[in-house]
């Protein structure tokens, strides 16, 4: 258990409603200092409302917020001087250049030291385009400029809403490295996202929210310890025998046919892939491939009721009768 002093951000019983619709229903968050915290939830779960409350854009109906160990109340705006935020989509003056936009933003809130703008433009890879108007930027470039804006005051706590939105693969990798570096330097990074794969590789600690309530919070390892999966590819003719055999070990999901072979998914810890392989081999069934991993997607769907619509389409696959592919850690055999 993390002590209160080690927490960069806490919320207790946070409630917020819009008219009759309850957006947050007693949200309790505990974000340890110096970690990347992945804040996951389906659309409409209350992620953006939480971000708005944490940045003073909205005020809670009840409950409390602590930022960097001190209460954050209405009108206590200076508490945000140590917080950097990128809320919703990146917002800029389209007729100003990237640098001019950062300069305009630097005129608000905490003072920004000289030279910081160029340093940040370099950090997010926009130095070459700093004089171009933002109206000509791609979504990914705007996102990077937004991250630069969030880092202006060298904050101790960084709140980012879907930071990977619009970034190309290289941009996502660069953003991930930047955030990891910031966490390594002792800063706390709170990332709201619906991209499970991204959170899986980025976050140390994950909180899952649904219908305005936190349903699970903890380190990824602790959350996923019961979410292991080993998939074995066996000849179709031997599927029934293999399935009976594997069901003695653990729950085994249906099969999916691929060019004469079938995949069987066994719900065991990933490190038991060898055991599964040996079991099949002893029965004369030779698996042509084995995959193992832990499935954040499954946990997410289990906790959120599985009804998460997503443009990525991955949730739909996971929710189907066919066993989902685990977050692959490469073939085990």
């Amino acid at each position: 258990m993390t002590s209160t002093a080690d927490l960069a951000l806490t919320t207790r019983g946070l409630r917020k409603s819009y008219g009759k619709r309850l957006a947050l229903d007693g949200l309790d968050l505990s974000v340890p200092s110096g970690v990347v915290y992945g804040f996951l939830g389906p659309n409409g779960a209350g992620k953006t409302t939480t971000m708005r409350l944490l940045t003073g854009l909205l005020h809670p109906d009840s409950g409390s917020i602590e930022l960097l160990g001190r209460p954050f109340k209405r009108g206590d705006r200076k508490r945000l001087f140590s917080v950097g935020a990128l809320v919703e989509s990146p917002s800029f003056y389209p007729y100003l250049s990237g640098r001019q936009n950062l300069s305009a933003l630097a005129a608000t809130g905490a003072p920004v030291p000289d030279g910081r703008l160029d340093e940040l433009l370099e950090l997010v890879g926009l130095r070459e385009r700093r004089k171009d108007k933002v109206s000509g930027y791609s979504l990914g470039m705007k996102q990077r400029l937004g991250i630069a804006g969030a880092l202006l005051s060298d904050p101790k706590l960084l709140l980012l809403d879907e930071p990977a939105n619009g970034l190309d693969p290289a941009g996502i990798v660069a953003m991930r490295e930047t955030l990891r570096r910031l966490a390594a330097a002792g800063k706390t990074v709170f990332v709201s996202s619906h991209l499970l794969a991204e959170v899986r590789v980025l976050a140390d600690v994950v909180g899952i929210i649904t219908a305005g309530r936190l349903v699970r919070e903890g380190t990824l390892d602790s959350l996923l310890q019961d979410q292991g999966l080993v998939r074995a590819r066996v000849p179709r003719a031997q599927v029934a025998v293999a399935r009976r055999l594997l069901e003695r070990v653990a729950k085994t999901d249906g099969d999916s046919t691929t060019e004469g072979d079938s995949w069987l998914a066994v719900h065991v810890e990933p490190n038991r892939a060898g055991e599964i392989n040996r079991l099949l081999a002893e029965a004369g069934i030779y698996a042509s491939a084995l995959e193992s991993g832990t499935d954040l997607e499954m946990l997410f769907l289990e906790l959120t009721g599985g009804g998460a619509p997503s443009s990525e389409g991955t949730f739909g696959v996971a929710g189907a009768s066919v066993a989902p592919g685990p977050d692959s850690q490469g073939p085990a055999a």
């Binding site: 940045t55 003073g56 854009l57 705006r77 200076k78 508490r79 945000l80 001087f81 917080v83 950097g84 935020a85 809320v87 919703e88 989509s89 917002s91 800029f92 003056y93 389209p94 305009a104 933003l105 608000t108 809130g109 905490a110 804006g149 202006l152 005051s153």
Partner: peptide, 22 residues
């Protein structure tokens, strides 16, 4: 109006700036 529609006021408030002062 553009401070709202472009979301630039939101950026300032999230940095701890007072809405009225801004």
């Amino acid at each position: 109006g553009s401070e709202w529609s472009w979301g630039t006021l939101k950026n300032a408030v999230a940095r701890g700036e007072s809405r009225a002062r801004y």
